[in-house]
Design a binder for these strands. Structure first.
Length: 570
RNA sequence: GCCCCUGUAGCUCAGUGGAUAGAGCGACCGCCUCCUAAGCGGUAGGCCGCAGGUCCGAUUCCUGCCAGGGGCACCA
């Protein structure tokens, strides 16, 4: 019996008590079932009686006793105790608890899915860094978190679409082009341009792809001639520079295990007339006005602290206008809920995006989800490392992966709550010792894999065997405290997935896996699985082997949600 | 000035109103003739920033204050 099934059982007990006239209270949709820290508080505990007592106008312990009597009649329930102010402490029948292991091995990769958000179409946009430089470490956090979140969403039953918004229009692109051009000429970057070795590398690639550029450069001569040849060269540098930079970003993210469903070009929105269409629609909704030669959206109607310009006085659309067009575009593509993963430096966007949503007639509380993650800072041996993209001194995602590998990089970025600023100590990460919890979790998986290999070598049946009979294993033998702990931990995955999705907190998966790995290691330490020496395998051997296999499945499923590999050997 | 995030063990951080607040690292003491010691057990270490409030019950929710970080463009 899983905790979810137990919760349903308790709800049913409440319903029965109400139907019988024993209790006068509205039957709750769901009840709290938790795993107590104290083993003497049972396998599971529920404060449901405390929660219902007031509404029922009864004493909590009275309500508890009433429900306990009904629960004791349930097949999977061995024992129910009313404790303290009115907690229900529930002990499951051995077979019911052990059934979790069976369920997991039977479900395999699909164990842990929680169909709590079935059918909701959610769009998740993350990273979306300007294509004017490599993926920085700050963006790396959103790559790891965003990708994990998309996997968690999918596991929770959402229909997910992931997107990267490419800012390939506007001033920064021109500045990047100018920087590339300067590099080609061997000149320093313009004052408002981009520096760093990568600019020269991109410049070389631009030249290689455009041999004709050589002549343009020669013809345009000096730096300030401003002629047609110069404009042509600049255009090529901007266009191809951004394209090549974007290709590099895609390759880096792909190497990091992050694949997007859509790379949406801002320029394509402009070219398709989406900005104009968005303004028209906003005008129809009655939120557009003109003042000082500019066109404005009255976002203050919906809580923004000031109105935002859509069209500047010079006739050019603002970046905000493109944001609105993109919002509309996503909604028209059928997404119910638009999720934006942004850094804390963009927190001013919340009000704006909410206003955009509301101006289009949507409900921001329902259609919009702006997640603000705190910044990543770097230190080296405890000393802060200053980074500046403009100055060109920064550590990239690529550097990080080179230093510690994809698994350690992803894991260390995703195991912290988005709400906390994350400080990565490069020395500590580069050390690649067991300081990193990812090894602890992966090691548990490798250790079990080894165990199962050994079992197969002894001729024992494992789930890899097509004829393996899961139901033939006597799971009621799993009664050792460490076995019970492990079964309890394994049963939590679906709930952890559901809460990680609901709270948009993929780090919960990581923390859960660390706890599970510890629980397994303790089980392994106290419970011998395989026969030793001349011993014959027993029913307990089979039961423990099944428990180990279930654990491996949960570890693998959890690591997959984080985009981290589950090695069979370490 | 206004807005957002954070404040929990020496350090880095978990903890969506439940019972005696946890993990990793660091410190100290133990455990491999035995399935992977990248492991396990034990000890030490906490006014959960401060003060009120709501509640049967608050680290969790609300208000105020203190401290640290970030943000407040007709930039992108």
């Amino acid at each position: 019996m899983t905790p979810a099934e137990l919760a349903d059982t308790i709800v049913a007990a409440v319903r029965a008590a109400v139907a019988n006239g024993d209790l006068e209270v509205a039957v709750p949709d769901s009840v709290t079932v938790e795993r107590p820290r104290q083993p003497e508080h049972g396998d599971y505990a529920s404060p449901v009686a405390l929660q219902l007592a007031k509404a029922a106008r009864r004493r909590p312990r009275e309500v508890a006793e009433l429900l306990a009597a009904r629960l004791r009649a349930e097949a999977g329930v061995a024992e129910v105790e009313v404790a303290g102010p009115g907690f229900l402490n529930i002990r499951l029948a051995g077979a019911a608890l052990g059934g979790i292991a069976r369920r997991i091995v039977r479900d395999g990769e699909s164990y842990g899915r929680a169909a709590v958000s079935q059918g909701v179409r959610v769009n998740l946009e993350f990273v979306s860094a300007n294509p004017t430089g490599p993926v920085t470490l700050a963006s790396a956090r959103w790559a790891a978190v965003g990708d994990a979140l998309s996997r968690v969403f999918a596991a929770a039953g959402y229909e997910v679409g992931t997107e990267y918004y490419v800012n390939d229009a506007g001033v920064q692109v021109e500045r990047f082009g100018a920087s590339v051009l300067a590099a080609l000429r061997g000149q320093p970057a313009p004052a408002d341009g981009y520096q760093g070795a990568y600019v020269a590398e991109i410049a070389a690639k631009v030249l290689a792809a455009n041999p004709a550029l050589e002549q343009l450069l020669a013809a345009s001569g000096g730096e300030q001639d401003g002629g047609a040849e110069q404009d042509k060269a600049l255009a090529v540098c901007a266009r191809d520079g951004v394209e090549l930079m974007l290709a590099e970003i895609r390759a880096t993210l792909s190497g990091f295990g992050v694949e997007y469903d859509l790379w949406k070009s801002e320029r394509s929105l402009h070219e398709a007339g989406e900005l104009t269409a968005a303004i028209d629609e906003l005008r129809t909704q009655g939120h557009v006005y003109e003042a000082d030669g500019a066109v404005w959206l009255r976002t203050t109607d919906f809580g923004d602290d000031k109105d935002r310009a859509l069209i500047k006085r010079d006739g050019q659309p603002t970046y905000f206008c493109a944001d609105a067009a993109y919002y509309r575009d996503k909604r028209r593509r059928g997404f119910d809920r638009l999720c934006y993963l942004l850094g804390a430096d963009h927190h001013g966007y919340i009000g704006r995006l909410k206003a955009i949503s509301a101006c289009f007639g949507d409900d921001p509380d329902h259609n919009l989800d702006v997640l603000i993650g705190q910044m990543v800072t770097l230190s080296r041996g405890g000393v802060a490392v200053k980074m500046s993209k403009r100055a060109g001194n920064f550590l990239t995602l690529h550097d990080l992966v080179d230093a510690v590998g994809v698994d350690a990089a992803r894991y260390s970025l995703v195991r912290a709550s988005m709400d906390s600023a994350l400080d990565l100590d490069l020395d500590a990460i580069a050390r690649q010792t067991n300081d990193n919890p990812v090894f602890y979790v992966q090691y548990a998986h490798a250790r079990i894999s080894s165990l199962i290999r050994n079992a197969a070598a002894l001729g024992l049946a494992t789930s890899a065997d097509p004829a393996f009979d899961v139901d033939g294993v006597d799971v009621s033998l799993l009664t050792h405290p460490r076995e019970v702990d492990l079964l309890g931990a394994l049963g939590e995955l679906p709930r952890v997935v559901a809460s990680a999705a609901e709270l948009r907190a993929p780090h919960r998966i990581a923390r859960y896996l660390e706890e599970l790995a510890g629980t397994y290691h303790r089980f392994y330490d106290s419970c011998r699985v395989l026969p030793q020496g001349d011993e014959e395998p027993t029913a307990i051997t089979a039961a423990r082997l099944l428990l180990a296999e279930a654990t491996r499945t949960v570890l693998a499923n959890g690591l997959r949600l984080l985009g981290v590999s589950a090695p069979e050997r370490m």
